[in-house]
Design a binder for these strands. Structure first.
Lengths: 188, 188
DNA sequence: TTGCAAACTTACTAATTAGTAAGTAAGTTT
DNA sequence: AAACTTACTTACTAATTAGTAAGTTTGCAA
């Protein structure tokens, strides 16, 4: 029974490791040793490290699509809060987001991985842009720029926010969230 | 004559590699091969990879101190522009900043490196906080939060801005700069 | 000119890396 | 019951990794 979800455990651990130390900082041995299986078992499920890396990104894409669907019926402010909260959880768990992890190692990664990652990044950015555009039109958010620019600003705040929290502490991140909301005019 | 600056060439290349692919994505062989020296020559100047990594960070600290001194006599807006420009150059050269590079690989790096990096991060953050505090007091910048919060916001915009530019293109970064200035009230 | 130190090269080593080929045990299908 | 598939293990390999010990060359100082 532990057997059947070995694949999923490998996938989850790989994502954890990518977002803790980076793709080139962990080995198949670390995964197999941690999960109590043999090195070849990891290769059985994911023949190459590139395949494993790709699957991590693909599952993150699916997760974001699920997030979109699950939050679609919420108010814009609740949607934004749900999005921000995923980063707060990252910050508490000392994990950076995939966008940051992949982009920093960009030129040390298989091109396939960076290409698939571009898809996820645009998916997130498009979603945020749309949210902000509607929110601005409805007078819910206030900002004096294109919604895509504001989307970039918020995403970069969050992505590097969890990174800098590793160097300056978690209060830096929670403080940052307040700043984002102030600039959007959604503070109360 | 090439001999005498081998140490500096190694240091410069190491920083380039850290900021292109990450610390754990390059080897002493890559450095020695690129510079046309032998592997042991790199070890002669930097006995261990940790020492090399530390020296890269220490030289970045010195560079930032120099930047502070050199720009101290400029106006606040010019100082801010000079700071932003270093990131624009990074973006054009497809290089992330050290803060981003080190923080993403955080748990895969020697503790010595991350500790020294905390120093650089606070140095930059303190400088930006001070700049924004004075600028706000003088009515040059407009924002409705603590200057340290605004400093975090701008630094995270820039740090992740160069990262996301790798995935979404350089226009994303130049667009972001406009957004930062709009929110500071320094657009014209 | 001898001595010495800086800046290397030559020639290694031990550990770690991703990856593979061949076997096996447990279930599932026919 | 036989054949087949899934999910592994055992036992490797070739390449790469950081790191070292023992030379060698070059310029400079005493």
């Amino acid at each position: 029974m532990a057997r059947l979800d070995t694949r999923q455990q490998i996938l989850d651990l790989a994502e954890d490791l990518i977002r803790s130390k980076g793709y080139n900082s962990f080995s198949y041995h670390e995964i197999s040793h941690t999960l109590g299986v043999k090195n070849a078992a990891v290769h059985y499920h994911f023949p190459t490290k590139e395949v494993l890396g790709l699957e991590v990104i693909r599952s993150a894409i699916q997760r974001f699509k699920d997030f979109k669907e699950e939050t679609a019926s919420l108010s814009l402010e609740e949607q934004l809060d749900a999005f921000i909260q995923t980063y707060s959880i990252n910050s508490e768990n000392d994990k950076v987001c995939l966008v940051g992890a992949i982009s920093v190692e960009f030129y040390g990664l298989p091109e396939n991985m960076t290409n698939v990652m571009k898809g996820l990044t645009h998916l997130i950015h498009d979603w945020a842009t749309n949210l902000l555009a509607i929110g601005k039109a409805e007078g819910m958010f206030t900002f004096d720029m294109k919604p895509e620019t504001k989307a970039t600003m918020i995403i970069t705040n969050l992505a590097a926010g969890v990174q800098i929290a590793r160097l300056m502490g978690n209060e830096t991140f929670s403080d940052l969230i307040k700043g984002i909301k102030i600039d959007l005019g959604v503070n109360q």
